[in-house]
Amino acid sequence: MIDIKNVSKWYGNFKVLTDCTTNVAKGEVVVVCGPSGSGKSTLIKCVNALEPIQQGQIIVDGTTVSDPKTNLPKLRARVGMVFQHFELFPHMSITQNLAIGQIKVLGRSKDEAIERGIKLLDRVGLKAHANKFPGELSGGQQQRVAIARALSMDPICMLFDEPTSALDPEMINEVLDVMVELAQEGMTMMVVTHEMGFARKVAHRVVFMDAGQIVEDAKKDDFFGKPRSERAQQFLSKILSH
């Protein structure tokens, strides 16, 4: 589904990604972790071309992302994304947030879009808040709406960019629960996160990044059992000790 081949990326002279290769198969959940500044957020933004790459190739469902002929809006419409800071549109109500993409991009009718939006809102347990504005919801609630917004486009796969790291601890679980449910339904997911509990529960593979490189790419049990690289061992011991 998502094929990342030998991707390198620079900001000016600074190399942020070095020769990254990995893939996410259909129905697979891949967790990407690593210390901050390791390039994991940058890598996931390259998948739907929010960040351009200078070398290598990314293919999503047969479409080459970095090909200048690729219709990016069309591709992005099929790839759902959830951001660290939710990025709901603050000037629109929750319902409008859920409907805008369906109406403007997929060309659905307003009624159809709202109906589908409300259904998804119900699914993330927030139907009662349909007419509120993002600023009136808690962080956890906003992030659940953001997941519903991504789902409203009927995506073929979902990208999560540190979806819980801007949340207060007591709100993390409500978001993770929604994500676990999605994973169990067989959604293809690429998730950048530090939540190792989530990884243990639903991930198929774990990718560990450090300094712009993919250091380790292993089956979940192998990764948590005995990481091969020293950096991954250090990282795991730090993150699991508390």
Binding site: P73, L75, R76, V79, F83, H85, E87, F89, G101, A150
Partner: peptide, 19 residues
């Protein structure tokens, strides 16, 4: 992030700006 969110739901440059 707002621009990215617009692009991520598949909007074009003008749609993202306008909406």
């Amino acid at each position: 992030g707002q621009v990215n969110a617009g692009y991520a739901v598949g909007m074009t440059y003008w749609q993202t700006m306008g909406n």
